[in-house]
Design a binder for these strands. Structure first.
Length: 420
RNA sequence: GGAGAGAUGGCAGAGUUCGGUUGAAUGCACUGGUCUUGAAAACCAGCAUAGUGAAAGCUAUCUAGGGUUCGAAUCCCUAUCUCUCCGCCA
């Protein structure tokens, strides 16, 4: 949610900032409505004041044996008037809320305009792997090494599901263990949240109402979380934290459930895009002053994890149009997939600033001003194992079809090379 | 799944029987002050959120949403959540 005051005071500034996302808005009608709301509000409030004042006098009049009949009749009229106006006002308020909740976050000043094509590669780690043999793709490798059972996965869950089997499951689990133990080492608090969340969680995260179609909804009204960010961001919804409690550094492991309706499955074979994948997610709650530093910290952590595995990757800063609606700034870590000759996202590290905090009323008591200010929320994958595993298979494959196990995983897996 | 109890400020906890200046007693926590070499204790003062206004103030909020009433924390309906007992169960 954007600050409505900012829209009132500097509508052109907001329009311009959103234009960087290729998002067109005109605030004229909205501002008219906003003024209308305010005028009406002042009117009802004065009516309510009248009602309250008179109501308070009535017991006194009765006590003195006076006749309040006429007053009561008058107040009945006033009361009905109030009810009617409140109704209209509710309608206007709802219209305003709907409009406000649909607006995406303002990109930071240093985020460049435009879409994906304007993403900027900041750094590259390692060298592009080269093979003196014909390298296989991860589907081929995962199948021939019996790491993943795609067919039976589809039999069980349908298209977009797979089964980690044997060493594949061990490898996946080893990745999770590696990430988790690194985060614990860094002093982040480990959370295992519910996988089914209520509507308010999706709203606060900024996914609802716009992206309701992207998640699996349950009959009970809850939905399956598309990322643990959706759970973590709601931890302190409707709460006021102490400034000394910030920043809070957390991480969670959950599977992520996504519809991925009408997506690129055909061209993205294997486990690049599924309805369920594993991810360890980092999350931070900070004061506005701390959030830039935390953004750097989370990014560094995510990079360190990929580097620890020895994978060749690049770090990009996203252009405004590629940044998620709830975010102000995002770095992507993209790992190289030889079979597709592309860099594929394994981590997105974003600063939402106060956008999510406004939606979820998350504040902290400012020590200096004694006022309640909105906190800043940041999130970053650390990391999506289901995207990392294909990269490991493809980047570390040998001519004989075996795959070298990255050092940090060897203890968990119990071997340094996976053979058929 | 069945039966019952409950939800009040940062926390605890009155108020709900019998609707009337109750945005809400009291305690704790927190903030400032007095005292003290310093601290503790004691004492004094302050301390919910949001909207609106230059301010005084006004309006709303006692889980949420409806209703009754001149007036609702208090009465009625619905939803959500929590707890207890029974049943079932990893």
């Amino acid at each position: 949610m954007l600050d409505i005051k900012l829209i009132r005071e500097k509508p052109d500034y907001v329009t311009k900032a959103l234009a960087k996302r290729n998002y067109d808005v005109n605030f004229d009608a909205f501002l008219t409505l906003d003024v209308q709301r305010k005028e009406m509000l002042i009117e009802v409030e004065s009516l309510k004041n009248k009602r309250n004042t008179v109501s308070r006098q009535i017991p006194q009049i009765k006590k003195e044996g006076g006749d309040a009949k006429e007053l009561l009749a008058q107040m009945k009229v006033t009361s009905d008037q109030i009810k009617e106006m409140d109704e209209t006002l509710r309608g206007i308020q709802k219209e305003i809320d709907t409009f406000m909740s649909g607006l995406p976050n303002l990109p930071d000043d240093d985020v460049v305009a435009g879409g994906k094509e304007n993403n900027e590669v900041l750094s590259v780690y390692g060298t592009m792997p080269s093979f003196d043999f014909e390298p296989k793709d991860h589907v081929n490798l995962a199948t021939s090494l019996n790491l993943i059972d795609y067919e039976r996965g589809a039999k069980l869950g349908g298209n977009g599901f797979w089964i980690y089997t044997g060493m594949g499951a061990q490898l996946e689990w080893a990745l999770l263990n590696y990430f988790i133990s690194e985060h614990i080492k860094d002093g982040y608090e480990f959370m295992l949240p519910p996988h089914m969340l209520n509507y308010a969680c999706g709203y606060t995260a900024g996914q609802f109402p716009k992206f309701e179609e992207d998640v699996f909804n349950l009959e009970e009204g809850n939905f399956m979380l598309p990322t643990s960010e959706t759970a973590l961001v709601n931890l302190y919804r409707d709460e006021i934290l102490k400034e000394d409690d910030l920043p809070k550094r957390l991480f969670a492991y959950t599977p992520c459930y996504r519809r991925e309706a009408g997506s690129y499955r055909a061209e993205e074979r294997g486990m690049i895009r599924g309805h369920q994948f594993n991810k360890v997610e980092m999350f931070a709650f900070t004061t506005p002053e701390q959030s830039d530093a935390l953004h750097q910290e989370l990014t560094k952590k995510a990079c360190a994890l990929v580097e620890g595995l020895g994978l060749h990757y690049q770090l990009s800063k996203l252009a405004a149009g590629d940044v998620g609606a709830a975010m102000a700034s995002t770095y992507d870590i993209e790992v190289y997939l030889p079979s597709m000759c592309i860099y594929k996202e394994v981590s997105s590290i974003s600063n939402s600033r106060d956008y999510q905090a406004r939606r979820g009323m998350m504040r902290y008591k400012n020590k200096d001003t004694k006022k309640n200010d909105y906190i800043h929320t940041l999130n970053g994958s650390g990391l999506a194992t289901s995207r990392i595993l294909p990269a490991i298979l493809e980047q570390f494959q040998n001519a004989d079809g075996s795959v070298n196990v990255p050092k940090p995983l060897q203890a968990f897996v119990g071997t340094d090379v996976i053979k058929a």
